[in-house]
Computed example of a mutant assay.
Amino acid sequence: MKPLALAGMGSYTVGGRPVVVDGRERQTVSLSAGLAGIEHDPNGRYWVEQAYVQYFVPHARRFELPLVLIHGGGLTGSSWETTPDGRPGWLHAFLAAGFEVHVVDNAERGRAGFCALPGQWAGEPIVRSEEESWSLYRIGDAADYGRRMPFAGQRFPVAFLDELTRRTVPRWLGTVDAQRRALTALIERIGPCVLLGHSQGGGFALELAARRPDLVQCVVALEPHGDFASIGATPLDGRRALAVFGDFIERSALWRNLLGNAQAVLHAWRGAGGTADALWLRDEGLVGHSHMMMMDAGSELIAERIAGWLAGAAR
């Protein structure tokens, strides 16, 4: 790993809302072996639905606009830090390229924590199983999961699948609007910026860029999905978008449908006056990449292609 010199780093939280609890009974709890029989009062003022953000400023900064990395569904900002097999992740790659980088743990994910207060979030949390990840991320056919037999030419480090599973976290299906609000608060805090999102995070990035072109200079979306109804409602003159796609999409009916939706989004973006590009990795000679392209073998080459695109788009 090439060493990096940082001019600064830190963290902050954005978004969320206060909640006041009252009328609940006190409880006697054991906080640890040495703190048994402690009286806990659950009443009081709390804060929920905030996002946690960690930022890094390279010493050799070459881009004025900060880059925000937005993780996918059921994942956290760790997606960008280190690959499952221990290689430097895209956080390192974009710092080396000269970007100030802000890594998000969105509301109810990772270090943003989750809301333990009753009655605030509807429903029960769900978590993605390893079997579901195998198929959904296009690592291999569902029937081949038991043998850990990936698609021929697949670049995901299958020997470290357990590490990806350990990074998968619970998610609540009713917190999508809270996550949107947190990301909006983020860009309002840092000002003009560049967004790069993966999967659900790619959908958020496109939505946010389309709603707030005053703050988002350009956006990169890795195989995005989401609610794109608002794209085109605001003029996008001079705003650029890049959607990035890996391989094996033809093996999945779900991903064939999501691809069609993503292509419609790019069309709507152009219709609103923006510039929208599609980057097929195989057309760049980067074959065999899964939905988790930032973790695949050779992922640093994908980051290089994106950084090159951003060099022209993030002026």
Score class of each variant (00 low, 15 high):
232 G>E: 07
164 L>A: 06
48 V>C: 03
186 L>P: 10
42 P>N: 13
111 R>F: 12
128 R>I: 14
106 N>Q: 15
303 A>V: 05
4 L>R: 01
63 F>N: 10
23 G>K: 13
301 L>T: 12
224 P>C: 08
182 A>M: 09
94 F>L: 13
215 L>K: 01
223 E>N: 00
309 W>V: 00
170 P>S: 02
231 I>S: 04
145 Y>C: 11
258 L>Q: 02
147 R>A: 15
119 G>M: 11
296 D>K: 11
111 R>M: 13
19 V>E: 12
116 A>S: 10
118 P>Q: 04
174 G>K: 01
140 G>F: 09
98 G>C: 13
132 E>G: 10
125 P>E: 10
242 L>Q: 04
146 G>L: 15
198 H>P: 01
255 W>P: 08
155 R>H: 07
137 Y>G: 08
286 L>K: 04
303 A>Q: 03
243 A>E: 02
306 I>N: 06
39 E>S: 14
149 M>G: 08
136 L>R: 11
296 D>V: 06
243 A>C: 14
302 I>Y: 05
193 C>N: 12
209 A>C: 08
268 A>I: 00
181 R>E: 15
301 L>F: 12
69 L>H: 09
23 G>C: 04
138 R>Y: 09
100 E>A: 15
4 L>H: 03
277 D>V: 10
269 W>H: 02
92 H>N: 06
30 S>V: 04
236 L>G: 11
43 N>H: 07
103 V>T: 08
186 L>W: 08
315 R>I: 00
273 G>D: 05
165 T>A: 13
84 P>L: 08
29 V>A: 00
286 L>Y: 04
110 G>K: 04
74 G>L: 05
242 L>Y: 05
134 W>Y: 10
200 Q>D: 14
113 G>S: 01
169 V>P: 09
148 R>Q: 12
164 L>R: 07
116 A>I: 11
242 L>V: 03
42 P>R: 10
